[in-house]
Simulated assay, not measured.
Amino acid sequence: MAFIVGMAKKYGVSAAQLCIRYVIQLGAVALPKTANPAHMAGNAEVDFVISDTDMETLKTMQRIENYGEFNGFPVFSGKPLA
């Protein structure tokens, strides 16, 4: 996580904004979830571009092997939803 925070600082954004922008640049749909209006506004401020080099770095980062108590959720475990 410290690596993501460091890269986010490079772009002058939060880690959440960096992650949202990453998903958008991959061509996927980002669905950030928050009930906090300030976080909603911040999550929408992704009008920057992650460099090709940084995108490649993010794509090839070491995967998290164990999400602890959340490891059973399909989104984290890699297991199919159905």
Results as ranks from 00 to 15, higher is better:
M7F: 08
V23Q: 03
P37I: 08
I20L: 04
M55Y: 03
A2N: 15
A30V: 02
I64L: 12
K59E: 06
G68D: 06
Y22L: 01
Q62E: 14
S51V: 08
I4A: 04
N36S: 11
S51M: 06
V5A: 15
T34V: 04
Q25D: 05
K59I: 02
S77R: 07
N43V: 02
Y22G: 01
G27Y: 10
K10D: 06
Q62W: 06
A82Q: 13
I64M: 14
C19N: 07
I20D: 00
C19M: 09
A35D: 10
E69G: 09
A28Q: 13
S77Y: 06
K10S: 08
I50A: 00
V5G: 10
E69L: 15
G72W: 09
N71Q: 15
S14W: 01
T60C: 09
D54N: 07
A41W: 04
I20P: 01
G78S: 10
Y22C: 03
A16D: 00
V75E: 11
T60G: 06
N71S: 10
L58M: 11
R63F: 11
G6D: 14
M55D: 03
N71L: 05
F48P: 03
L18S: 00
V13L: 03
Q62T: 14
D52S: 12
I20Q: 00
A2C: 12
F73D: 14
G12W: 05
S51Y: 05
M7K: 14
Q25H: 07
F3C: 09
R21V: 00
Y22Q: 01
V49S: 11
Q62N: 14
V46H: 01
G12K: 04
E45W: 04
R21G: 01
H39V: 04
E65W: 08
Y67T: 03
F73A: 15
Q62P: 05
G6C: 10
P32N: 03
A16F: 03
K33S: 06
N66H: 08
F48M: 05
L81H: 08
G78I: 08
P32G: 01
I64A: 11
E65L: 09
I24T: 06
E65I: 07
N71M: 06
P74W: 07
V29Y: 08
D52K: 11
H39G: 00
F73H: 15
G27H: 10
V5L: 13
P80F: 09
E45K: 12
M1I: 15
K33R: 09
F48T: 06
I4R: 01
I4L: 12
